[in-house]
Simulated assay, not measured.
Amino acid sequence: MEPRPRSFYILTGFFVLFLLFLYGPTLTIGILSFQGPGGGLTFPMRGTSLHWFRELFEQQAVGDIWGSFRRSLVLGLMVMTTTVVVSVIGGLAFRKRFPGSTVLFYLIVTALVIPSILISLGVGLMFDQAGMTVHWSTSGYGAQLTWTLPFGLLIMFAVFNRFDKSYEEAARDQGATAWQTLRYVVLPIIAPMLLGVALFGFTLSYDEFARTLLTSGSRNTLPLEIYGMTTNVTTPVLYALGTLTTGFSLLVIGTFITVTTYLARKRARAASDAGKGLV
Rank of each mutant, 00 (worst) to 15 (best):
A130F: 13
G131W: 15
G131T: 15
G131E: 14
G131R: 15
M132L: 15
T133L: 14
V134S: 09
V134E: 03
H135K: 14
H135P: 09
H135E: 14
S137A: 15
S137I: 14
S137P: 05
S137Y: 13
S137R: 14
S137L: 15
T138C: 02
T138Y: 11
T138E: 01
S139T: 06
G140F: 03
G140E: 05
Y141T: 09
Y141N: 00
Y141S: 02
Y141R: 01
Y141E: 10
A143F: 01
A143N: 10
Q144E: 12
Q144F: 09
Q144S: 02
L145Q: 06
W147S: 06
W147T: 02
T148G: 03
T148K: 06
L149W: 11
P150R: 11
P150N: 07
P150D: 03
F151W: 15
L153A: 06
L153W: 07
L154S: 02
L154F: 09
I155L: 10
I155H: 02
M156G: 07
A158G: 10
A158P: 01
A158D: 12
V159K: 10
V159Q: 07
V159H: 00
V159F: 08
V159M: 02
V159G: 04
N161D: 12
N161I: 03
R162P: 01
R162T: 12
R162H: 11
F163N: 04
F163H: 08
F163Q: 05
F163T: 07
D164G: 10
D164C: 01
D164Y: 08
K165C: 07
K165F: 02
K165W: 13
S166C: 06
S166R: 15
Y167K: 03
Y167W: 14
E169F: 08
A170V: 15
A170D: 14
A171N: 10
R172L: 05
D173R: 01
D173F: 00
Q174P: 01
Q174E: 12
G175F: 05
G175H: 09
A176S: 09
A176M: 12
A176P: 03
T177P: 02
T177G: 13
T177A: 00
A178Q: 15
Q180F: 03
Q180I: 05
L182K: 05
L182N: 08
L182R: 06
R183F: 11
Y184I: 07
V185C: 01
V185L: 11
V185Y: 02
V185M: 00
V186Y: 02
V186I: 14
V186T: 13
P188I: 00
P188T: 05
I189T: 10
I190P: 04
I190N: 00
A191Q: 12
P192L: 12
P192E: 09
P192A: 05
P192Y: 10
P192I: 13
M193G: 06
M193Q: 14
M193W: 12
L194V: 14
L194W: 04
L195Q: 06
G196H: 02
V197Y: 07
V197C: 04
A198S: 02
A198L: 01
L199Y: 02
L199I: 08
F200W: 13
G201C: 14
G201W: 04
F202Y: 15
F202S: 05
T203W: 06
T203G: 06
T203P: 08
S205Y: 11
S205L: 04
Y206P: 00
Y206Q: 04
Y206D: 08
Y206T: 10
Y206C: 06
E208G: 00
